[in-house]
Design a binder for these strands. Sequence first.
DNA 1: ATGGTGGCCCGGCCA
Length: 256
Amino acid sequence: MLIVTWNVNSLKARLARVTAWLEEVQPDVLCVQETKMTDAAFPALTFHEMGYEAAHFGQGQWNGVAILSKIGLNDVVANFATGEPDHEARIITANCGGISVSSVYVPNGRALDHEHYQYKLRWMRQLREHAAAVSSPEGKLVIAGDYNIAPDDRDVHDPAKLVGQTHVSDEERKVLSDLCAWGIRDVFRDHYSDGKLFSWWDYRGGDFHQGRGMRIDLMLATKSVADKTTWCGIDRNARKGEQPSDHAPVMMMVGE
DNA sequence: ATGGTGGCCCGGCCA
């Protein structure tokens, strides 16, 4: 079972690239972030014609998350399963082939002294409660998406340059490790210990071609799923060419 | 180099 997460940075702007990529790679499940559209505008029929059921939770011009699946899509929950209110569309959950899958777009944070940073920390703490509401550490759960947090210094190009900025602060890394401590882990790190393996590169300054990126798109899985993951990867080719997203798809293969 | 690019949708905001 191939499960993928991809922040597409506007599904409207990226639809042709997303459908071409789906045709080529044929993942079983695709978690999408930053669709930036309403539920009414979501191209569910386009995906259905390609063999995917789809569920979308959007709000309009910002945020928006979706799950596409060709192995079943049941028990869809928009927003936190705890019922905790959130004014932005950042998380959707569904059961796909027996695995509970959440597609998440964690708040960016903007700056350490910004109110949005506190929102980010609160949101991550809520995500831990959400995990406990939909699964147990012994269950089958994947929370995939754009966390806007680089787990450690291997996950950024130049740690020294980023001191004092978001994505790398101790507090952000702490709320991420607290989530993992509940009973979920970063499966990419089971398969790759090297640094400089990134999933996002700023559009500016030729950062992609200069290798200046971050690994902020993560797939966290409970033990029963993580232990059966045979392969992980990041499709850098999807960051190349005409009108790419600034994120690349991150993939995990779960065996049976 | 507090710039740069690209998405929202048309003036800045957000990433």
